[in-house]
Each structure stands twice: as structure tokens, then as C-alpha cells.
Design a protein around this nucleic acid. Structure first.
Lengths: 337, 337
DNA sequence: CTGAAAGCGCTAACAT
DNA sequence: ATGTTAGCGCTTTCAG
């Protein structure tokens, strides 16, 4: 039972024995309980240091009913957006002495619920990032996952804060930017069909269409990766568009690369915009015009909401929306004559 | 004590009561112990389902002396290399039912030991990735962290597998590649001074120097980021080098961007190489010649070593070295006449 | 101010 | 095959 008999870890019992006090006293000292005689406290601390004792986190968790750990479920750890978000959560949580357990569903949406549930059982709360599951499944999951914070996904259920990015506004800003440069034929290279954020972009573009009846806007099938952008060059050129709104920066970079191979000049022949403003966007050739999403900050805020939940049991800010910020760079320019 | 009295989680006791059996029987059923009457087992399972019971991981961990979780300590979660490595570990570990707790030291080397220790106390083992701490500190830490796997760092201590990348070989291959293209003045844009992998590159370049006495090789101060590459343009141009070996792909991309701004053509005027072959390298303009490091595979292997340690208590493969693979792309070309 | 003892949720001898 | 019971390492009432 338990760990191997040999070289067992030293526990609170050893320290108590060594210091000639009871377990309770050691515990009190280790937890900074003031009501301990200074001399005894010193003796205990000395013993702890000498034995190189560190309280076992699992035992502590069981007794306290908390693990000081939260789980973060992401759809794909290879995606720069989720990496940045994870970093935001992790660093913010670390500031408050919490750790992060990661669960990567690898874009298998049927795994999300299971992963989230498993993670929840070892953690004090769950951050669910851009879950791919359908609304009904998500709503059904909420009670068993609480406390939970949602990123890039909404819910009607109360008590679950959600952090949203206004992709509709961002894509409109980019489209307006292109029309301002004289582009009248614009193509949207769309993302994964089941992506909620792609839906928001499409909604934004419908508004744009309504406000700009003179502009010809084509929606082309795409994806979310370099490859998707790279492979869509033919479609783009065939569309006759002079301005392209790529689903995100990755797609835009793939497109940039593909256009370069074809000898198509950016932005002289065609303008390209991305979305997200990942760190690389500034360093493409030419630098990418994009809509910056403060995704690391979103991650930080996710932790703050979680902290609220873990504290009071409720968070004031139940719905926070982040506005993407237009970053005008070299990949967009005046429409060709 | 423990969780709030209200709406307490349902535990094994509730299931036992509901099914009219003992705790032990429920435990046996939940753990797939065969020696349980099928009828009773079914009854227990029914009760578990009805009550939506899931065994608590913390209680289980305490009883079993294992958490099915490993900790991964990285110097910087913003670095694509460590992100890819983390993904490799995480996905491989998930295959075997293990989870990953992340600890990001944010390049503060004095925090590494503390983070690693804390993580170790809640996990079954630690993967230490490219630790920045000095050798003495690392060696002193090993006993208290075991089982541990090292990435990009070596140790004389037995029982600690380490996974290494032959940066020296890789940088030599790149240098030879450039000389093969006729470059006789080459600059190495070095990485962070305290980086072990930078040291390996420098050693490799010393060998290169010995083998290629005719080549003028300059070492310039640099860094590990876009910005470092971007800011070193002046130094590069002043050096008169026609071929530049950047510390890594990020630096190379920054440099590419800076050269483009100056109107310096790549590879016509100057050739640039990176290191790592991060996913973006293929899509820069021009695509980046680099030495591919199978970093995700390194992460996977790290898990396999850890799995060995967690099983037999020892791993056969104590030292594994990965050879970078030259990726010849558009950013390197014949030296200008 | 300190110690004894109960208990967090679960597993595994040990008995029956 | 099932139940009883003693822990895993720690915290915290409750007595003293």
C-alpha cells in the first residue's frame, strides 16, 4: 500500500518526532499559525530544514478539499492562439500560487467532455477554451464542471463567466480598411466550418455587406492553417479579388508564401490581411496587416474570473468582450489601378 | 474541514449505500477487479451511473501513492521550441493516461528549482526542459526530483535520462552548406550567453573553423528573439558577411524582416539560415534554410523515458542524441560575385 | 498553547 | 466473493 517501503519520503510525523512535538503543532507551524510558542516554532522549523521536509501536496489537498490547481482544456496545443492563451492563464495563476494542468483535445471534440471531467476531478476549476462541442452538450456539462470559465464561447447558464472576442467587429474593421484603400472586390478565406469564431466573422461580414452594397464580397472555403492558405492561392486568383481577408494570421502567411511563389506581389497586386496578430505577424514579408486580439490578456482575465469563482463563489464580470485592434502594416495597400 | 457542507460531491460511500454493498466492493468494481459477482457489479455500476459518481482523483492519489501526473518545467512558454516540446510530452503522456502540469519559469533561473520542487510534490515525476541553472545546482537538485528526465541538458548523475540535440553538428552542417555555396565570410549571430545550446553551437563552429581555415567566421552578439535578429541588421551589414548563421529561426526571421526593410535582398545579396525548423520557417519570404530539430519527438521521447522510470524504476536509454537535419530552402543561395 | 483524535475519499490487506 | 478495517499525509476541531 502506498509507496515502496524503501527510502520513503519524510513526512510530518518524522518532523514531529524529530522536534519532539505533535503532528498538530508541526502542521500549525508549517501553515504559519501564530498561536505557537516562538521557541517551539523555531525548533520545528529547524527540524523541518534539517530533514528537508516539504509538506506533501496530495495529503494537503485531501484534507483541505482544494488542490491549488486549475485545468485548462484547449482544442489544439499546436495553435499559436491557444499557446498564447495558455501562457496567459498559467502566468496569471502562478502569481496567485496556482498551477495549471493542461488537457489537449487535439481537435477531437468528442474527447472534450471526458478530458474536462477528468481534469476537473483533480483540480479546483476548469477553463474551457473554444470548445468545439455543440451548445446542448456544453450546457449539460456545466453543472459537473463548475467552477468553470469559458473562453470564446458563450452560455446562458448562470455562474459561468465567459470571455469573448468580437471577431465580427474585427473582420469588419479589416474589410473597411480594404475598401478605404480602394478595393472593391474582396474575398474572405473562411475558417473551419464548425468554428464558432468563423461564424462570428461571417456575421460581421454580412453587416459589412449591408453597409457597403457597392463592394463585391466573395466567401471562399479555407481552413485555419498555413497549408489552407497556401493551397487557396488558385481560388483567390480565380476570384479576381484584389483584397483578401484571411481567416487568421496562419492562413494569411500561407497565402503570402503561395502568392510569392507565383510571383504575385503583395500589396501591389493583391492585399492580404490576417487575424489575431500572432508574434510572427510583424515579421512576415511584407509585415502583415491584421486585427490584434489580446489573447494572452484574455488568458489572464480567465484566471481572474476563476479566482473570483474560487473566492466569493461568484464573479462580477460574467461576460467580457475584447475588441480586436486593427494593425495596419505592409501587406495591405491601395487597390491596383 | 474539507469542502463546504452544502451540495457535497457524491463519494464512494454514497454509491455503496445506494447499491447496498460495502465500500470495498464499489472500489473493486470501479477498478475492474474481476473477483466480484457479475450481478453485484452490475448493481454497483448502475448506482454509480445513477448518482453520476466519479472517483475522486485526490483520494485515489493519496491511497495509491501516485497521481498519474507529471510536471514539465520550461524556461519560457512563449518560445515555440518549448511549446512544441510541451505538446510532444503532453500528447504522448495522454496516450498512457497521464496528465501534464506545467511550470513556466519565465526565464528566471532562480525560480527553476522552487518550481520544480513544488511540481514534484504533486506529480509522479518531472521533466526539466533546458534548465538555466548552473551544473552544481542541477546536480544537487536531482535526488529530490527523481524520477526526472532532462531535455537539452546533461548530468553525470546516474538514473536521470537526458535527451540532447546535437546543435554543434547542426550548425556545422549549416556552415558547410554556406561554404558550399561559395560564401567565404560568414557571421554567427549568437544566442543568449548563458544558453547551453548556444555553447554547443560555438563548439561546433570551432570545429568548423579548424576544418575550414580559409573561411572568415565572425561571431556577433545576438539573442533568441525576433527583436534580437531585427536589431542586429547593422552589425551584420557592417561585418561584411555574405552568409549569416542565426541562432535560431526566430532570430533569422527578425533578420529577414530587417534586411527586407533595408532593401537588402535574400539570398541574392546575403544568405540567412535559422535553426530549429519551427512551423513558420517554411512560410517566410523567402522560405528559411534551417536545421530541423524534431523537438516534438524529443518531447514524446521524454515521456517514454519517464514511463520507463515510473515502471521498472530505470530506463535503458540514458542518453539520447538527436541529429538536426539540414533543410535547404530559399533563404540561402550562391554568394554574390 | 499544545496534544489527541477524527476525518478528507479511496485502496488493499486481512478476515470471513 | 464480500465485508471490515487500517491506513495514505495532512488539517482541524475539541479537550486540556
Amino acid at each position: 500500500m502506498g509507496r515502496k517501503a524503501a527510502n520513503r519520503r519524510i513526512g510530518i510525523t518524522d518532523v514531529a518526532q524529530h522536534a519532539g512535538v505533535s503532528l498538530a503543532t508541526v502542521s500549525r507551524v508549517m501553515n504559519g499559525n501564530l498561536s505557537v510558542d516562538p521557541d517551539i516554532a523555531a525548533r520545528v522549523r529547524a527540524a523541518a530544514t534539517e530533514l528537508n521536509y516539504h509538506p506533501d501536496a496530495v495529503g494537503r489537498s485531501l484534507a483541505l478539499g482544494k488542490t491549488d490547481t486549475i485545468g485548462v482544456v484547449v482544442p489544439d496545443l499546436a495553435n499559436p492562439t491557444f499557446q498564447a492563451m495558455l501562457r496567459g492563464v498559467s502566468r496569471a495563476a502562478a502569481q496567485d500560487g496556482y498551477r495549471v494542468l493542461i488537457a489537449d483535445s487535439s481537435e477531437v471534440s468528442s474527447e472534450e467532455a471526458i478530458l474536462a471531467g477528468e481534469a476537473r476531478r483533480r483540480c479546483d476549476g476548469i477553463v474551457l477554451c473554444a470548445p468545439r462541442m455543440v451548445d446542448a452538450e456544453l450546457d449539460a456539462l456545466i453543472p459537473s464542471l463548475h467552477p468553470m470559465v469559458l473562453i470564446n464561447r458563450n452560455t446562458e447558464a448562470p455562474g459561468t463567466p465567459s470571455l469573448l472576442v468580437d471577431y465580427g467587429q474585427g473582420i469588419q474593421a479589416l474589410a473597411v480598411h480594404l475598401t478605404g484603400l480602394g478595393h472593391s472586390r474582396i474575398a474572405f478565406l473562411s475558417g473551419p466550418p464548425r468554428s464558432a469564431s468563423n461564424g462570428l466573422r461571417l456575421q460581421g461580414l454580412e453587416k459589412f455587406r449591408a453597409n457597403h452594397p457597392g463592394i463585391e464580397l466573395t466567401v471562399l472555403p479555407g481552413g485555419s492553417s498555413f497549408e489552407a492558405g497556401h493551397e487557396s492561392v488558385d481560388g483567390i486568383l480565380a476570384s479576381g479579388a484584389t483584397g483578401v481577408l484571411a481567416f487568421n494570421d496562419l492562413v494569411a502567411m500561407g497565402l503570402l508564401s503561395g502568392l510569392h511563389e507565383r510571383g504575385v506581389r503583395v500589396p501591389q497586386d493583391i492585399s492580404v490581411t490576417g487575424f489575431d496578430d500572432i508574434p510572427f505577424a510583424e515579421y512576415t514579408t511584407p509585415p502583415l496587416t491584421t486585427a490584434a486580439v489580446p489573447i494572452t490578456e484574455v488568458g489572464e482575465q480567465a484566471w481572474h474570473r476563476m479566482r473570483d469563482l474560487l473566492g466569493d463563489g461568484a464573479s462580477e464580470n460574467l461576460r467580457t468582450t475584447f475588441q480586436p485592434d486593427l494593425q495596419q502594416r505592409g501587406s495591405s495597400g491601395p487597390a491596383p489601378a
